[in-house]
Design a protein around this nucleic acid. Structure first.
Lengths: 197, 197
DNA sequence: GTCTATATCCAGATAGAC
DNA sequence: GTCTATCTGGATATAGAC
């Protein structure tokens, strides 16, 4: 991995931990194993690091949430749907990179229009789009009742997003949060799942 | 209003706008109409201002969301419920103080354990507690089906919380956000409201 | 309680040797 | 590309006059 990439990696870690304003260039450099001024051979300013970071964060997110793996398969039955969804949730909660991007974004969302847009996409429209597809598929399969798929996607995802944000800021409740999410998903299935007659 | 209170007021405005680290004591003082060093006759440090601010924010929130006005009345029918809820949402979105507290908290939630707890209460447990009571009342009245009231409270409030957060960071979508919230509430009523036979 | 002047510190960034 | 030395500006905070 190039020094440039290492810088972005350590910058993300520190920005997530202490915020952009709370992170010094020397601190980033130290984690990379170089001195502060050496950063300026790779980036022309601290803000330049921030912007490059946003670029990679955006790409990485799109790669992940746009990938076929995550929207491709339609579940076989309700229990399969619950397992699939919880697996996705568990990964999202514990993957260090995804987690840091989330924590970074939520703190810096007001810094620029661009960051605001990306945050809305991550928290709302990106996830909703993914689950709308899944809801449509499940309606086609006769697994859930016919209804507005975007509405169902919102009702399924919003509580999970808020609970994951809780786990981000209070990691001591991570286990409880995962249980609450599963409970919520099962309730969702009870409400919208079609009875097997 | 005392100078001390004015300082807290202007500090909240600036912390919400530029974050705690992004706000200088001189900037706070200027809005109050005094010079930076004069602040130190009222607070012993910038962090002291922050802590006092958290105290008042907490009190103000508890006053508001714990008040009888917001949890007391049980709606007469579904349309009444929708109107009540939308009125509460509109107020929450547009009240400058509540809005600043929300924006301040979301940015500074990782600064301390205490801020993390308060954020979770504002976004999750406080709202859920309030709506759980309302759901229980509506079940007693036979307005909605019998179900886990805490679950319904979460499903009702979570999308609204996320959409309000969107309006906070992207005020240009405020109108659209309010429409989306109403649409979501009406869908909630369609799903859980009892038919009038 | 407010002011001006100032102490102290630390951040981002540059210069130039290696 | 990395280093050391350094510039520069801005920040929190204090001292002491009014």
């Amino acid at each position: 991995m190039s020094t440039k990439e290492r810088i972005l990696e350590e910058a993300l870690t520190l920005f997530a931990e202490n915020g952009y304003d709370g992170t010094g260039v020397d601190a980033i450099a130290e984690r990379v194993g170089i001195k502060g001024p050496s950063l300026y051979k790779h980036f022309k300013s601290k803000e330049d690091i921030l912007n490059a970071l946003i670029d990679t964060a955006e790409t990485r997110y799109d790669d992940y949430f746009g990938s076929e793996e995550h929207i491709g398969r339609i579940p076989d039955d309700m229990e399969d749907f619950i397992q699939m969804t919880m697996k996705r949730v568990s990964f999202t909660v514990s993957d260090p990179m995804i987690r840091k991007i989330r924590i970074f974004l939520v703190q810096e969302q007001f810094r620029s229009e661009r960051l605001a847009e990306i945050t809305t996409r991550h928290q709302l429209h990106g996830i909703q789009r993914m689950y709308t597809k899944i809801m449509e598929g499940m309606m086609d399969q006769g697994l859930i009742v016919e209804d507005d798929p975007a509405m169902l996607a919102m009702e399924l995802s919003a509580p999970a997003v808020l609970l994951i944000a809780k786990a981000d800021r209070q990691p001591q409740y991570e286990k409880e949060v995962l249980e609450d999410i599963e409970k919520h998903i099962r309730h969702f299935c009870d409400v919208y799942g079609k009875r097997i007659d």
